[in-house]
Design a protein around this nucleic acid. Structure first.
Lengths: 341, 341
DNA sequence: CTGAAAGCGCTAACAC
DNA sequence: GTGTTAGCGCTTTCAG
């Protein structure tokens, strides 16, 4: 593993390391001829600056940490695609960790990344995170953080989200226009920003169309759809109401697919008996039985934007006053699962 | 960002940096009392060793690079889960890059990771990689590499794969036992290890059951199922043969879902007209129309094993003679798409 | 038992 | 236009 250093070049060319360093960085005070010599030799020897030495000197690592709930979810993997594409162009390292919806893991991963001196953090909160101290401390220490999708109200920084209210409003309205009146809403724990926003959009759509909001049609899933037992029990309970819903609007990926699975098992006819619309970025929603009407978030663009904002924060630490929350439009893909009654 | 260093501790306690360093590493030659003082103060001040300084000294980064075709694929995201779980326990950083099935990106990402001084590499080859020079050079330089899933024959190192032959044999046999005789095989470019192995299993199963292998029933997809046009054309061509297949066995995730999509569009009845079995780790195969019979790889375990082997290579660079290729059993999940004729 | 000094690779004052 | 030196944070000889 004989990697060549600036020292080696200096020795070979009978120069000092500083001259070599300056020549390589194309400093104006170096003789063009020397420059040529140095760069040519460096080229020939395949010199690559040691990023670790650079990091130590500049006390920045040119790496950023990403903590998301899970990778095995199209929304998040597309988000990562976006992050990565920007990061790679800018020479940044991206280190990804999954919280698996655990507050403890989120904290542990955060600490690990910080101890490893990442230049910034990209976060999508776990569904069980209610205490934000670990992030607040870092913010006050000056570590750049950008939140994505699941964002905290209490922290002032850049945030990148989907327009959840609109997306939710549109989905609910679509169900109403398809003739549905008793529309249930499956969602994640209430402390998540996406939960309240999507709930608000759902509620407003009902009101605007003269349908009374009914709390019993809203169900919160502590595990966000990852616990099959919880899914089954929750949906059964809905269907056993005196006036069971004639439509379900689910607010997250796992809930959307989980709900369809339960309805299939319970032999509930979709869309005849219950229409279904769900948030999901799954690429195979059209293969489902029936094809699933989806609310899709522009995950890739969101990831790119988040990374851009983070870079801005990292490279201009001073101008940290006016933080933006960027909201991206969702799109509604109408398929058979929400066909008219 | 006032991070505390060994120097700060030394100053505060009127000791030398070397004493502090030794105390923290619990060296036997340090006075227990001094040790206590130092560790307590370090604790109180939340001292964390600077990993970058350590890396510079030890010329290793405690980070490993992963290059996979794409993240938005359950097999690979589960693989990453496995890698990550082991890495985190051992304090390693995992840096992930996607080749998006491009040879050029694979090379570029490899170079980037190497220039960033990763301690080792975990690779799953892009479907377009035929030239392995970039990896061979690194191997001779002593960089530990472990290949996963899509592995090269030409390079001697640890490899972690699924038992593709068996998995493929089982799937094909299952179709034969369901009464199918004209079984087509959709697969990736032939230079991938998984392609030849799965093809071999398919072929052997046909032979063992007295069915002649017929080249016209095998179709190679240059884009591995990611190009919808290519999928449609390939499958149409199959279905327009004088004797169209009565079953299709697809060898990759994208081809499995892509194939089902095309068959649905073309109004081909599954399984009545054509039975379908596919390799995929999708978690929603049972929601498909019809529910899809799948060959599933133990991706998580494969990732864990790959990481363990890589660590072994990194931490014991000498014993690099007897390389293992570990093959994991696949499992067949029988669902409606492959029901008897 | 503890301290001084060197060095990992690089850059930036500060000389000359 | 080029060299010398110091320092980023840490460990490890080598001296006491």
């Amino acid at each position: 593993m004989e990697t060549i250093t600036i020292k080696d070049i200096a020795k070979a060319l009978h120069l000092s390391t500083s001259t070599v360093s300056r020549a390589l960085r194309n400093s104006y005070e170096i003789n063009p001829e020397t420059k040529r010599l140095v760069t040519e030799y460096a080229q020939k020897m395949q010199y690559r600056p040691n990023p670790i030495a650079l990091s130590l000197r500049e006390s920045r690592s040119k790496s950023i940490g990403v903590i998301i709930p899970e990778i095995a979810n199209n929304f998040f993997s597309q988000l990562i695609n976006g992050i990565e594409s920007v990061a790679y162009d800018l020479g940044y390292y991206v280190v990804i960790f999954q919280s698996h919806e655990s507050y403890e893991r989120e904290v542990a991963h955060t600490n690990f990344l910080v101890s490893r001196k990442v230049d910034g953090l990209l976060i999508s909160l776990s569904s069980l995170t209610t205490n934000l101290l670990h992030f607040q401390e870092l913010m006050t220490k000056g570590l750049p953080i950008v939140f994505m999708d699941r964002v905290p109200n209490e922290i002032a920084t850049h945030k990148v989200v989907a327009d959840n209210f609109e997306g939710s409003y549109g989905a609910t309205q679509h169900l109403i226009r398809a003739g549905r009146r008793r529309i249930a809403h499956l969602t994640s724990p209430i402390y998540l920003s996406i939960t309240t926003e999507r709930l608000a959009g759902y509620r407003k759509a009902l009101e605007d169309h003269g349908i009374a909001f009914d709390e019993k049609y809203v169900r919160y899933f502590a595990h966000g759809g990852k616990d099959e037992g919880e899914n089954r029990d929750g949906i059964r309970a809905l269907m056993q109401l005196p006036e069971p819903p004639d439509a379900i609007f689910s607010a997250s990926d796992r809930l959307s697919t989980g709900c369809l699975a339960v309805l299939q098992n319970e032999k509930v006819k979709v869309p005849e008996q219950v229409a279904l619309v769900g948030f999901t970025n799954s690429g195979v929603a059209d293969l489902f039985n029936p094809p699933l009407t989806t609310v899709v978030q522009p995950a890739m663009e969101m990831g790119q934007q988040a990374m851009n904002l983070l870079i801005r924060l990292i490279e201009h630490p001073q101008a940290q006053n006016n933080f933006e929350t960027m909201a991206f439009k969702t799109s509604l893909n109408v398929r058979e699962s929400s066909a008219g009654a």
